[in-house]
């Protein structure tokens, strides 16, 4: 179980590094915001824990519920905010042309 997880971890590090190395400075902020939205993938783990918590644990369910709510704010808010930023960016570019 541990080794496959480490493989995924390693590949993710390499993919992240390779994807981010050549980015123009103007895109740093939206990229940071977009990557943060993607980090909201925690929501999947949160859903699993809210649902998989054993029947005798309401506390685990409540913690899972809060985790889902926070992660979803991060996901929904993150993508919308990034889109707004990039939208402004696009209109600026068009004006220049």
């Amino acid at each position: 179980m541990l080794i496959p997880l480490l493989f995924v971890f390693l590949l993710a590090i390499i993919a992240g590094f390779e994807l981010i190395t050549k980015v123009p400075p103007t895109l740093h902020t939206p990229l940071m915001s977009g990557a943060n939205a993607i980090s909201g993938i925690t929501v999947v783990g949160a859903i699993l824990c809210a649902n998989a918590a054993p029947e005798y644990s309401t506390l685990a369910n409540v913690l899972g519920f809060l985790a889902i709510a926070f992660a979803t704010i991060n996901v929904v808010g993150g993508f919308l905010v990034t889109d707004r930023m990039l939208g402004m960016f696009g209109s600026k570019g068009k004006k220049k042309k």
């Binding site: 925690t42 783990g45 949160a46 918590a53 985790a67 704010i73």
Partner: peptide, 13 residues
């Protein structure tokens, strides 16, 4: 908030 989510996932787990 993302950080809070992973914290809560860990506590719940």
């Amino acid at each position: 908030f993302g950080g809070a989510a992973s914290l809560l996932v860990a506590l719940s787990t």
